[in-house]
Design a protein around this nucleic acid. Structure first.
Lengths: 237, 237
DNA sequence: CGCAAAAACTGGGCCGACCAGCATTTTCAG
DNA sequence: CTGAAAATGCTGGTCGGCCCAGTTTTTGCG
């Protein structure tokens, strides 16, 4: 077994994580003021530069609102939160989504990828099909290797489904998939573990066939069905 | 007329913007290497701390790929881009979307908000309705003031539609709306300019009625129709 | 010429000082 | 005592330099 690079979190990252924990656990509530940067510096013995960088990162993630020369207050992250906020929440939970979160995620996936699938099936060109076939070929190549590489296959599956969004002609759909990326990769890893590598690649081929046939409705229903299969499989565990 | 706070962009922000411009204009192409941080420091007379922060921000936005101790290269932002990348592109274009972008945006809106609308109509509670009514009341209060404040109304309309996503019970939908926020606000400002303030508030009330009636299909069609009206109005200009 | 040691450079993390602007307190003329 | 102006002390923001650990290029010995 290969041992990856051991990532040492920096002190700044640790501070970010600590404050995130306090906010998500409710110890710090929306509207609460944070100590000033200098005060945090004394408490943590981290330089002001790094303290400042940590607070800026937390503001970007939607956890804080910083007003120059006035200080930082905890934001209501249901108001200001973005996908990054959610990624932080999931990471803090050990990388696991709750069942409700998984269902929410899948609903969002159906809404976005389903719309892309419909659009693409209705107006696919030879070029679109060739683009997706090329990705399928990469997946097949991975299947034939004796040493299975689940992470690489998950990456290819991500690229296939982003390809559907990319080729749908809508500029927004692929961007949304990129935004979801960490969560989607986690999903594909699980899907490969549960249903097997070959089964996932086969499903991708099925989507390609339905797109080629121009059968938007069937493609959409196929997506709904496989999502439901996955969710019920998850609930069994 | 009230003059708001004049925001002075920091030198870091200016550097970020300048590099974004060079990438979006094609002066810097995917794969090109950027000068080292120390070289940029000499050229721009900006401290290394800020140079580094700027490059990290550009990487987060999908414009660069940084490899530790090797340097930064321009990324293919169609591959790595997120909503932030798009926001930057639109901002650089003076806040204007192309017609194709507007259509893509509206398709994405139908996909996401439509799904939320359906879900909410099917399982709304009294609490959900009260939450949305409270926002509508704020909109009415704005309408009655003699001094019209379009920006405030756009903010309320945004909150109403995010409220639909929030109350749909899906955790992801409101986050996606937050992600879109700058674009959505621009859209509401235009909608108010084109159709008038009262008309937009009236439409919101109509959504609320359909949600209360539990008529998911009608609510969805209403959304599709108003989107199409907006797009055809845009194309006339 | 071959190739390994050394030098030069890279981004990453960190530090303590300094800057400009806001808020409160202090000062001091009226 | 009053009230405006000056001084002080706070804030977030920026700065340039330090060391570290890898990468790339140059050097120089065999």
């Amino acid at each position: 077994m290969q041992i990856g690079v051991i990532e040492v979190p920096s002190r700044k990252d640790l501070l970010v994580q600590k404050i995130e924990e306090q906010i998500l656990s409710g110890k710090l509530r929306a509207g609460d003021s944070l100590p000033s940067e200098r005060q945090l510096q004394e408490e943590t013995h981290i330089s002001k530069t790094m303290i400042h960088a940590a607070l800026v990162e937390l503001e970007r993630k939607g956890f804080l609102q910083i007003t120059p020369r006035r200080g930082a207050v905890v934001a209501n992250y249901t108001e200001t939160g973005t996908m990054e906020t959610l990624n932080a929440r999931i990471r803090l939970n050990g990388g696991n989504m709750s069942a409700a979160q998984a269902r929410s995620f899948m609903e969002a996936r159906i809404a976005i990828e389903g719309a892309a699938l419909r659009r693409l099936a209705e107006r696919r060109t030879e070029e679109d099909l060739a683009y997706l076939e090329e990705i399928i070929a990469q997946a097949d190549a991975l299947l034939e290797k004796e040493k299975s590489d689940d992470a690489a296959l998950a990456e290819v599956l991500f690229r296939f489904h982003r390809g559907i969004c990319l080729r749908s002609g809508n500029e927004f759909f692929p961007l949304l998939l990129n935004e979801f990326r960490p969560i989607i990769m986690e999903f594909w890893m699980r899907s490969i573990a549960v249903f097997g590598a070959a089964s996932n690649v086969h499903l991708a081929k099925r989507y390609l066939e339905l797109i080629r046939a121009g059968d938007a409705d069937s493609a959409f229903r196929r997506l709904e069905r496989s999502v439901n299969e996955y969710l019920s499989c998850l609930e069994e565990q």
